[in-house]
Write a protein that binds this DNA or RNA. Structure first.
Lengths: 221, 221
DNA sequence: AGATTAACGCGAGCAACTTCGCGTTAGTTG
DNA sequence: CAACTAACGCGAAGTTGCTCGCGTTAATCT
């Protein structure tokens, strides 16, 4: 040990690194919102952020990885409602999801991540984990409703919530039309009726829309 | 006009053209099923099909266009059920959709088309039209139910059917888990309950999950 | 059958994307 | 504040993907 200071080989989380990171992610987000994933290039992000192209490749290696980091960055956005009743909670959450998908920034990001996930396994994992985590958190909403006796006891929270989210991603990725307010209302109403009817219970009709793992007893045909 | 034969500049639909087309699409489908969109390259399709790389670029220009042609080729696969009752029809259709998405070939294709649509407007249009057409066809199922008095008169067929399809695409593209039989059962039960409750009527709660065009009166906030 | 030409095979060329080596800047620590 | 080095900027080299021109094959029509 001479007069060595920082252990060589360690990462350095300090000022400049964080600054360029912010600049890059901001530029990426803006690019996605304005020109979409179609026009996304490392080159463009480099120019817009003022960070050199080589640096981008060094730290992120590809646009897929870049986009995937922006997704994980975007946590804690959609706030969980607690209105006291299940219909109120579902409506509020559906509207929040509608706004989330309605924003050009997040819309472009979702599209980009799904496209990235088709090619990059790491992006696929990030995508799955992101929504898994949100479903887990939002599960509290359903558990409260079960505790209040508004839903069957064996209702699967993740099934309910993925049913609430599915129409929005369908609208964006498949139908490719704008997310209008009516979709939120319709979806909230639909999921409420379905949940009350016991469509998302673990025992009866099926394992439901979200929890995939458990071995379902039925057959495929 | 010497002894000219075929009008010069016309397309030639005959034997060889069609044969290479089939070979290419078959190779593409196999590649998607085996290695997924991640590993899809013009190079690979060329080698597998035995068609020269330059020919692929000449006729399709990119993998996006290629994939998009395979989608339009895949018409008339999911058969429409007619069991006589709405619950029966919904279950049967949900199972058919489940099998459709369960197949590695179509699963890879869907993923590929969605990824392609994120970059190529033509692929986006093809994707939208494909599902739009199927929704339109399957609408008959809902209209029959309305005629039998099983559903409210102003039920929007497309809303019902996109609600039936959404959970599957969500499972594949977002949740990224296998499509199990339970999902079909759960979805059929859920959509039935929601439709009976009037969640997909044009008047009441919202315009619904599928027909996006009509001006919805509500606001986003 | 024979003439005509769209579609294909082939390899070389072009362009875009990605990586590498080196000098410089600016956090970090004693 | 002085030494140290991770992270960055920069331009050049390397790689991959895509296009072009030319000769060949095989549909199509009289």
């Amino acid at each position: 040990m001479t007069t060595a200071h920082q252990a060589p080989g360690e990462t350095r989380p300090g000022g400049r690194t964080a600054r360029t990171r912010r600049a890059v992610l901001a530029a990426l987000s803006a690019e996605l919102a304005e020109h979409g994933f179609a026009a996304l290039t490392m080159e463009r992000v480099a120019q817009r952020s003022g960070v050199h192209l080589a640096t981008l490749y060094r730290r992120w290696r590809s646009t897929d990885k870049l986009v995937c980091e922006l997704l994980t960055e975007l946590s804690g956005d959609v706030p969980l409602p607690d209105t006291g009743t299940l219909p109120g909670d579902l409506r509020a959450l559906a509207r929040a999801i509608g706004r989330f998908y309605g924003d050009a920034r997040t819309r472009g990001l979702i599209e980009a991540v799904v496209a990235a996930a088709a090619r990059d396994p790491q992006a696929a994992t990030a995508l799955r984990d992101f929504f898994d985590e949100r479903l887990e958190l939002a599960g509290a909403l359903v558990r409260r409703a079960v505790a209040r006796g508004e839903l069957p006891a064996d209702t699967d929270p993740k099934a309910v919530l993925s049913a609430l989210g599915a129409p929005f991603s369908y609208r964006i990725l498949i139908a490719r039309r704008p997310v209008d307010p009516g979709l939120a209302e319709s979806t909230a109403t639909a999921v409420l009726a379905a949940a009350e009817a016991g469509a998302y219970t673990t025992g009866a009709a099926g394992t439901g829309g979200g929890a995939a793992d458990g071995g379902a007893p039925g057959r495929a045909d």
